[in-house]
């Protein structure tokens, strides 16, 4: 009985749209744009036309997720293992609160901070003229790390928070230095959280187009940009659908791989946050 609503929900919000897109993907672009019925795999055969977009995305997503991870892990570690208990909730809230504002607004704020009248103006004041920060790969990376940080911090925090502290003592007791303990116990046991955060951020990054557009000047073309252009500019819906389907398949592969890795290394199941 309880399965009823859940199944209906899945069908309405996941299965039906997916089927619609799958049907579109074997269709043809109408002369004025949009979709017209057909059965052809021409759209899939045309995927190499967006190979660069796929490639850029496949590079950006892991690098972005990795950069996010490198920043998020120490924060999560501090929150879970070092922060005084009474501060912990407040600090966690501070991590989450920016999420209440739309990513667009926050990214716009960065546009101003990095733009010519932001930090470069400060730099000019102390003698460094014409420094350009906006529309650089660094700006995109910063935007990504900033935008997705909470999604990375939370699952890592959860897995570190669950970590049995006696294991750390046991490791130290057995002669492991703090670094060695971190590498062979803390890190490995927090891997489910790391993989959850990593795959979450990575999958979202696979569809990201806003941050590269706003902070990167739209010079690097990602799958997200390709999709926006195909659906809203050239209105080539069938080709866009074929790309979307491919993207979904890639995401599934990423999820499965992340799950495998974390299961193998930590011997535990991943933290399910989604």
């Amino acid at each position: 009985m309880l399965l009823g609503p859940a199944t209906a929900w899945l069908v309405v919000f996941l299965v039906l749209p997916f089927i619609a897109i799958a049907v579109f993907s074997v269709g043809e672009r109408a002369p004025e744009g949009g979709y017209q019925a057909a059965f052809t795999f021409a759209q899939y055969a045309n995927l190499p036309a967006r190979a660069t977009a796929f490639w850029n995305t496949m590079v950006l997503a892991p690098i972005g997720a990795l950069a996010c991870l490198l920043v998020a892990y120490p924060v999560a570690y501090y929150l879970a293992l070092r922060a005084p208990q009474r501060w912990r909730l407040i600090l966690l809230a501070l991590v989450v609160i920016p999420f209440w504002t739309s990513l667009l607004m926050r990214t716009y704020a960065w546009m101003y901070v990095l733009g010519g009248r932001g930090i470069p103006a400060l730099l000019a004041y102390i003698g460094f003229e014409d420094v350009r920060l906006i529309n650089t790969p660094g700006a995109v990376l910063l935007g990504i790390v900033y935008g997705y940080l909470p999604l990375m911090i939370l699952p890592i925090y959860v897995s570190l928070e669950r970590l049995d502290r006696r294991l750390l003592e046991a490791s130290a007791d057995l002669g492991a230095t703090p670094l060695s303990t971190f590498l062979s116990v803390t890190l490995k046991l927090s891997l489910p959280g790391v993989m959850t955060g990593f795959s979450l951020v990575m999958i979202l990054l696979l569809g990201e187009y806003l941050i590269p557009t706003l902070l990167g000047g739209g010079k690097v073309f990602f799958i997200g940009n390709a999709l926006v252009d195909l659906f809203l500019q050239s209105r080539n819906w069938p080709f866009g659908s074929a790309i979307a389907i491919t993207l979904v398949l890639v995401s599934v592969v990423v999820l499965i791989a992340a799950n495998r890795i974390s299961t193998r290394v930590s011997g535990a199941r991943r933290v399910d946050l989604i």
């Binding site: 036309a49 660069t52 195909l230």
Partner: peptide
């Protein structure tokens, strides 16, 4: 449209 895509992804 394809030309534009090639330009943007270059």
């Amino acid at each position: 449209a394809e030309l534009m895509a090639r330009f943007k992804s270059a």
